[in-house]
Amino acid sequence: MDSGPRPQQAGAMTSLGGAEFAPLTKTYLNTASTGLLPLRTAQALKAAADDAAHGRVGPEYNFTALAAARAGFARIAGVPVDRVAAGNSVATHAGLIARALPSGAEVLIADDDFSSLVNPFAVRTDLKLRSAPLETLAEAVGPQTALVAVSAVQSADGRVADLAALRAAADQHGDTGGGTRIVVDATQAMGWLRLDPRHYDYLLCGSYKWLMCPHGVSLLVVPEDLGPDELVAFNSGWVAGEEPWNSCYGPIAELAHSARRFDERPAFVSYIAAQHSFALIEELGPERIGAYDLALADRCRAGARELGLLPVDARSPIVALPGQGAAAERLKAAGVEASVRAGNLRAAFHLYNTEADVDRLLEVLAEA
């Protein structure tokens, strides 16, 4: 089996994704905002919409697709499927965890991390919310820290959290502080970066970026040693029952015995599509995808430095150019789609991009 991306010549037009994606009408470098749908996923969406219009699909099919998507995500994450709950947004998952914390609990976050992760803890004004720079987050863990919430990869600039160091710090204080849980938002990581399940307790992942799903697909991985009273299924509806079709009326007599008890009612059409995107990630492999994406980002950073620009030092496919946010409109006019975050021009490279895309971005930036 091929263990890595095939070398490309400068300007090569064949991407790692190849025929899995439609030909692009512009230079799309905005996966950190929204990933492009593989053709197989788009076709599944179209078929689902057509089936719904003609009454050809019953609810049983929806649950079959949901189970397939859940299992696919579990394999990508490297966790047992019974630890995976399905929902619609990272903020809702984070809110479920935040609600379970006792009053006065200390929550440690990284400075300027993504709001969907941190705000559910911030609105709990009875919690002690503390912030520290990403680079020193592990050092900031103390004996009173009940929970650390951090993005595996920072949305604004692509910096990667040292989750191994964070786990070591949390374990060091576990005996004196009663245990420190680690919550990781993998939205900007899953799909190109393999995360070690030993380094977190909870994993939250919106799947519309590097996992290339439609909006409405968000997965929650709960701790392997989750206590019976640690997390309450406040968002549970009938789908969270051990037997959903026998849980439609009145209080649910028996919640699911697995993490499925924390399911929200899923956006079924999105999950029908998600199983196909997850399958593509599995076929190519996150390691191979990551190596390909990082090679493109490295080329971009090197080219930016040659132009006198100073990209943020980050080992990720997200390339951030501080102070260059104003260039986004000029790039868009030239057919190059990037984004602006925290004043940075942000380009993001994924398996449908090529070296030609990198060179086009640099060419337009050099015209300033």
Rank of each mutant, 00 (worst) to 15 (best):
S3N: 06
P5L: 08
R6H: 03
G11D: 06
M13Q: 15
S15W: 02
S15I: 06
S15K: 02
K26E: 15
T27N: 11
Y28S: 02
T31Q: 09
A32T: 02
A42C: 08
K46I: 14
A49D: 14
P59Q: 11
A65W: 00
A68N: 08
A71Q: 14
G72K: 00
G72Q: 01
R75D: 12
V79R: 12
S89Y: 13
A91F: 10
A98E: 09
I109P: 11
A110S: 15
D113F: 01
D126I: 10
L127Y: 04
K128P: 00
S131R: 14
P133M: 15
E139G: 12
A140P: 09
V141Q: 02
A149Y: 03
S151R: 13
A152L: 03
D157Y: 08
A161H: 10
D162F: 07
L163P: 15
A164W: 11
L166D: 13
R167A: 10
A169V: 12
Q172H: 13
H173R: 11
G174I: 12
R181Y: 09
R181D: 07
I182Y: 06
I182V: 15
V183E: 03
T187G: 00
L193M: 15
L195A: 14
D196H: 14
D201I: 04
Y202T: 08
L203F: 14
S207L: 11
K209T: 01
W210L: 11
H215S: 05
V217D: 04
L219Y: 14
L220T: 05
V221D: 01
V222W: 03
E224C: 03
D225M: 01
D229V: 00
A233G: 00
W238Q: 07
A240Y: 04
G241E: 05
P244T: 04
P244W: 04
Y249D: 14
G250C: 03
S258V: 09
E264C: 11
E264D: 13
I272F: 03
S277T: 01
S277P: 08
L280I: 07
I281S: 04
E282Q: 14
G285S: 05
E287G: 03
R288P: 01
G290T: 07
D293N: 15
A295W: 00
R299V: 03
C300R: 05
R301G: 08
A302N: 05
G303C: 12
A304S: 05
G308S: 11
V312H: 09
V312G: 01
A314I: 12
I318H: 07
L321C: 01
L321D: 00
L321R: 06
A328E: 14
E329R: 15
K332C: 01
G335I: 13
E337C: 09
A338I: 11
A338H: 04
S339C: 10
V340I: 13
R346Q: 04
A347C: 13
A348E: 11
A348G: 05
H350W: 00
L351T: 05
N353I: 07
E355S: 11
D357F: 00
D359N: 11
L362A: 00
L362V: 07
V364G: 05
A366P: 04
E367F: 06
